[in-house]
Design a protein around this nucleic acid. Structure first.
Length: 513
RNA sequence: GCGGAAGUAGCUCAUUUGGUAGAGCGACAGCCUUCCAAGCUGUAGGUAGCGGGUUCGAGACCCGUCUUCCGCUCCA
């Protein structure tokens, strides 16, 4: 089976067993938007909790917040998102090059301006010292005409861009006969507003309402709360602020199932450090995060670092943790040394002093930031796709099983009466009522026992507790392990403790800072 | 955005050149069953992705559109 087939199987398994459904499927779905089903929501929640514990609960100097998705519009000016992610773009179909439509028009204007300049220079030479450039420009018919052209183009361009009338922008480009500098052709696509950020209006009146963006990353919610948290928590550098939550990006091409979605969930931690210490912490978190991934038991060969050579405007070091998805190694998590870029920018735009006062040196300074940022949906896909297995058993039959790390499994225990008589269902219900207080449990009495085991395998339940005839005599049950299919006989009274102990096995423990 | 492939029941797929839409599995109800999906009986579930065209008649042919997957591109 090749990877493409495997990926298709994984996607249909996700749907068939209630992990992930296409959004609004009864209306044909919505491109690159997905809903988590009854089992998916549990797995996703467990991943989030596993991360949260590793970050917040296990580190005394890391706290969490939950910032709103809506933020003050100036946030995105300070962060650089407004400038970086909002342009009218047009592609040349022949050269496949993409241009900003306004830049193409400005270049065209510049060419006309060149013509005027040359005209003026020529005249200046001719008339010598008596030459009055201003008078010349106002009276020379060719210059006047070109100047009119420029004014016309510029005013129309500004009008169309303000109105976001991109059809008119394209028409203008075609009317002016602008060609692609690379291919020299006029074979243009439509002008499209490339705006990575989703926008909406705050205030129900259309007039006077402010444009509000849905956050394209959760990190800014942490930066704008830096002062609040520092002042209310008594934390000293180095310390971290963690957050999980939805972010939104209007990707041009959103693909590969839940790998690249327009609405997605991030798990981010911004670690504030003393300037100069950032590389030490960058390396600490690099090692720590890979350790976290490996604690989940997926083969280390599926992970690798990818150091950035070209750095973003805010970073002085950056690496990705890449995971081998069915469609190849792709970014799963980013670890970035963001310097003081964000706090300095917010300081400038807000006028607030976003600094830490170091009582050891009696100095105030803007902390540097080391960020770990992981896509929750991507982590879900990483876990789900590597857990999906079709095993060939000794008798040649095939078992479809999700080898999800037990700590992350949607259901921890299934309680199954061997047969639906002799009081076994009642006994099983009794056990279930106890266990469900601590673990997510499923009860199933329908069909043959073997089939019920396979049903649990398919959703990744690590333990099946079976009530049989012996149970009725001595209050013991069998507990079946999903991965080995082996069974142990244990006392009902010990079940809770045994399961709890097994779930804790190999769990992540942080390295001392 | 460009190119390729696909879309019939929850799933996998039939429906010979156009002639009133079917099976297996699954689900549900019941029977039978002492341990790894294969026993028996019954029930439910589809205006064939959607829209239009050709035709006496379209799941099938044509056009459009939507969605998904793959490659390129883009993004990070």
């Amino acid at each position: 089976m090749n990877n493409e087939e495997l990926f298709k199987k994984i996607i249909s398994h996700a749907k068939e067993y209630g992990f992930i459904f296409p959004s609004s499927e009864i209306y044909d779905g919505l491109s690159a938007v997905y809903d988590y089903g009854q089992n998916g929501v549990e797995l996703k929640k467990n991943i989030r909790e596993y991360w949260w514990k590793a970050m917040v609960q296990y580190h005394e100097n890391i706290v969490g917040i939950d910032a709103a998705i809506f933020m003050h519009p100036t946030t995105w000016k300070a962060s650089g998102h407004v400038d970086a992610f909002s342009d009218p773009l047009i592609d040349n179909k022949d050269s496949k090059k993409r241009y900003r439509a306004d830049v193409l028009l400005e270049d065209h204007i510049a060419k006309i301006e060149d013509k005027i300049t040359k005209e003026v220079e020529k005249a200046a030479k001719r008339f010598g010292e008596t030459f009055d450039a201003k008078m010349f420009c106002e009276t020379n018919p060719r210059v006047v005409e070109n100047q009119h052209k420029i004014d016309d183009i510029r005013s129309r361009m500004n009008e169309y861009l303000t109105k976001e009338d991109f059809v008119a922008v394209k028409a203008l480009i075609e009317e002016l006969g602008i060609v692609c500098p690379v291919s020299g052709s006029r074979n243009w696509t439509d002008v499209r507003q490339f705006n990575l950020m989703f926008s909406t209006q705050m205030g129900s009146m259309a007039e006077g309402a402010d444009t509000i963006y849905l956050r394209p990353e959760t990190a800014q919610g942490i930066f704008v709360n830096f002062l609040n948290v520092m002042k209310s928590s008594r934390l000293k550098l180095p310390f971290g602020i963690a957050q999980t939550g939805k972010a939104f990006r209007n990707e041009i091409v959103a693909r590969q199932f839940i790998f690249r979605m327009r609405e997605f969930e991030q798990m981010e931690m911004q670690f504030f450090v003393k300037p100069g210490d950032e590389m030490t912490w960058f390396n600490y978190w690099k090692a720590e995060r890979i350790k976290w991934h490996e604690s989940l038991g997926t083969s280390p060969a599926k992970y690798r670092f990818h150091d950035h050579e070209k750095l973003a405007h805010y970073a002085n070091a950056a690496t990705d943790i890449e995971f081998e998805f069915p469609f190849g190694f792709k970014e799963l998590e980013g670890i970035h040394s963001r310097t003081d870029f964000d706090l300095t920018a917010h300081s400038k735009f807000s006028g607030k002093k976003l600094q830490f006062f170091d009582t050891e040196t009696n100095e105030s300074y803007v902390p540097y930031v080391v960020e770990t940022s992981i896509g929750l949906d991507r982590m879900f896909l990483a876990i789900f796709s590597s857990a999906f297995n079709e095993e060939t058993l000794e008798d040649g039959s095939i078992r479809t099983v999700l080898n999800i790390p037990p700590v992350l499994s949607p259901y921890k225990v299934a309680i199954l009466p061997l047969v639906k008589k002799d009081g076994m269902p009642e006994k099983a219900r009794e056990i279930m009522d106890e266990l469900k207080l601590d673990f997510t449990c499923q009860y199933d009495e329908k069909d043959a026992i073997g089939r019920r085991y396979r049903r649990q395998d398919a959703i990744g339940t690590p333990y099946c507790v079976t009530v049989d005839h012996q149970t009725l005599e001595d209050n013991t049950v069998t507990i079946r392990d999903r991965d080995t299919m082996e069974q142990d006989r244990v006392a009902i009274a010990d079940l809770n403790q045994i399961i709890a102990k097994r779930l804790k096995l190999n769990q992540y423990k942080p390295t001392k800072m």
